[in-house]
Amino acid sequence: MGENLFANYGEAVAMLLFGIGFANLLLQKNLIKKIIGLNVMDSAIYLFLALKGYIFGRVDPIIIDGDLNAERYINPVPSGLVLTGIVVSVSVTALMLSLTIRLYQRYHTVDLDEIAILLRKEGK
């Protein structure tokens, strides 16, 4: 168990980061901190994927000098998935930030609990 952890320290770090991001997104009251948590969580997954696609001693899958030998290159699929994931996470972050701006303009705070209290006072 311990040896496995040390041999795969990259994956272990990715999982730790995922946990940190997840907890922040779930537990923080401040919306900006929540969004930071979201980005940490997503980046942790991309780190995990990138590690899974990397093969030691090989180069990135861009053909140079017409070398078509597959043994030379790393697995390109996880890199593709990471790129797709980044696009998704950028758009989601943008949406969350715009929601935060809307809430801030209306209630002058980014604390979700305070906003809930203000809403209750509004009583609508």
Partner: peptide
């Protein structure tokens, strides 16, 4: 676009993003 709906949408997004993070990790 009332205060209520924006807050509800924010809460919905937060919970949904937690869910999709877990789904993405399990797919990986």
């Amino acid at each position: 676009q009332t205060g209520r709906t924006i807050e509800a949408a924010t809460r919905y997004m937060i919970m949904s993003l937690l869910g999709s993070g877990m789904i993405l990790l399990s797919i990986c």
